[in-house]
Structure formats: structure tokens, C-alpha cells
């Protein structure tokens, strides 16, 4: 008669064991990437020290951090310049991209006529456009325009797609109750397009940084601009390799920060309903 109890007990302990395994797997999933990353940095430091590599060839991570602290005055100002360029470019690209996507949604004909311009801007490498813009505009504006151009397209194309992929039966419902195009846009198409728009925004954030960096490098010493990429070029001329690495580190961190902020925004806006944001 003890058999069912034994079975039940075995079941509970098996379940307990499985829960433990899941928790352990999750812990490993967090710790392992961190350990690998720290290991790689440590290996770098180790190789540089053991081989006595000079800092102007390859600076050790500790030297890069020290340089970052020493040059923080200059570098932090450059960081602010780059962040500002990016932020303005992203805001302009968002406003412009959404506005034009809404216009596209009103008429196929307008979309067909204007889309080629957007595509040409997109497929032409920004490095190739930058020198031309530097001829026409002062370097600060040219850099801003470059960042804007690359950030604009993903927002435009994603929002256009989102506005066009509204559930046709919901549109029928709006038609049945006599809703005009404006109400349909506000109450139906805009919310349906939101996940698409946010996807575009996340891509645009990264691209705005790339656009700004590329344009700053193209402007090079000619520019009186002082963004992070300009610091890299400048340090290159002076063979100040640790400082190049320090600026590079800040650019990477900026990219990560932008991505994290936009991912958070998107999570907060979608968490109540969209599949991609559901807690699993």
C-alpha cells in the first residue's frame, strides 16, 4: 500500500530536482558570458604584460582605463558632442520618418513617387555622401545631416510597413461604423504600427551613431568639431594609441547605452499587449 506514496514522493523530489536544475541553468546563463568576457580582457592584459608590448603598439586594458580617467576632461566633452548629434539626428529622423510614412499611407501614388528618393539615400554609402555635404555645409551641420540620413530610412520603411499591415477586418469594422480616415489613423493604424515603428527606432539608434562617427572621421582635421570620432583621428595623428582606445571604448559604450534605452522604451510601450514584449 506504500507504493502510491513512494511514487508521489519520487515525483516531488524529481520536480524539486528539476526546479533546481532550471535555476542552476539560469545562473550559468548569466555567469558564463560575464566570465568569458572578463577572461578575454584578462588574457589581453596578460599577453601585453608578458610580452612587454609598448603602449603605442597595443595598450593594456588597465592603461586604457587610466587614460580614460586622465583625459576625462577632453573626452567627456567629445562624448557630449557625439551624444547631442545622435539625439538630434534621431529626433529629426523619427519626426520626419513618421510624418512621411503617414503621408505614404494616405496614397499609394505619393508613396510610389517618393519612395525612390528614400531608397537612393539609403543605398548610397554614407561615407560617399559625407565629403559632398562637408563642401556645402559647415562640419557640425554636415555631421548631423549624415546621422539623420542613415537613421531616417529604417523608421520610414518600418512605419510604412506597420501602417499598411493593419488587420483588414478591423478596418472593415471602422468602415461599418462610419469612421473617417483620421480616426482610423489615430485609433487603429497608429497602434497597429507601433511595434514596427519601435523596431525601426532601435535600428535607427545604432545607425545614427554610425552616421555621426563616419561623418566626423570624414570631416577629420578639417572639422573644428570635437566629437569622439574626431578624437580618434586626432589621437591617430599624434600616435596616442591609448587615447584612441579610450575614445573607442566610449563610442562602444554609447552604442550599448542607446540600444538599451530604446529597448527599454519599446518594452515599456509594448509590455501590455505585444507578443515580442511578453514575459516568458
Amino acid at each position: 500500500m506504500g507504493a502510491p506514496d513512494d511514487e508521489a514522493e519520487a515525483g516531488t523530489s524529481a520536480r524539486g530536482r528539476r526546479a533546481g536544475e532550471v535555476a542552476r541553468a539560469r545562473l550559468v546563463g548569466i555567469i558564463l558570458p560575464i566570465a568569458v568576457f572578463a577572461g578575454a580582457i584578462g588574457l589581453w592584459e596578460f599577453i601585453v604584460r608578458v610580452n612587454g608590448i609598448e603602449p603605442y603598439v597595443l595598450p593594456a586594458p588597465s592603461v586604457v582605463i587610466a587614460t580614460l580617467a586622465k583625459d576625462w576632461g577632453t573626452l567627456s566633452l567629445s562624448l557630449l558632442v557625439t551624444l547631442r548629434t545622435m539625439a538630434i539626428a534621431l529626433v529629426l529622423a523619427t519626426v520626419g520618418g513618421v510624418l512621411i510614412a503617414v503621408i505614404f499611407a494616405q496614397s499609394r501614388l505619393i508613396e510610389r513617387s517618393l519612395y525612390p528618393f528614400a531608397v537612393i539615400l539609403q543605398v548610397t554609402p554614407i561615407v560617399a555622401i559625407a565629403p559632398l555635404l562637408l563642401v556645402y555645409l559647415n562640419s557640425g551641420t554636415a555631421i548631423l545631416v549624415c546621422a539623420f540620413i542613415v537613421a531616417f530610412f529604417p523608421i520610414l520603411s518600418n512605419t510604412t510597413l506597420g501602417l499598411a499591415s493593419t488587420d483588414p477586418n478591423l478596418r472593415n469594422l471602422f468602415k461599418l461604423y462610419g469612421a473617417g480616415p483620421w480616426r482610423e489613423l489615430v485609433l487603429l493604424r497608429a497602434p497597429s504600427a507601433l511595434p514596427y515603428f519601435l523596431g525601426g527606432l532601435r535600428i535607427a539608434g545604432g545607425l545614427a551613431l554610425i552616421g555621426a562617427v563616419v561623418a566626423e572621421i570624414a570631416a577629420g582635421s578639417a572639422g573644428q568639431g570635437s566629437g569622439l570620432a574626431y578624437r580618434i583621428v586626432e589621437s591617430g595623428y599624434r600616435l596616442n594609441i591609448p587615447r584612441m582606445f579610450a575614445a573607442l571604448l566610449l563610442i562602444s559604450l554609447t552604442g550599448i547605452l542607446v540600444y538599451a534605452v530604446l529597448a527599454l522604451v519599446s518594452h515599456l510601450l509594448l509590455r501590455r499587449w505585444h507578443e515580442s514584449a511578453l514575459d516568458r
Partner: peptide
Amino acid sequence: FVFQDPTLMPWASVESNVFLPLRLE
């Protein structure tokens, strides 16, 4: 009108979905 799929607006609560026809009126 009732469609084969519920065609609810996924971003809106049940009451907002039911409110829709009156809202449009």
C-alpha cells in the same frame, strides 16, 4: 458584424474593445 476571427484590438482592454463602435458613433 462578427468575423470568423475575434479581430479584437490587442492593445486595448476588453471594455475599450467593446466601447469601439459607440466611440466611433
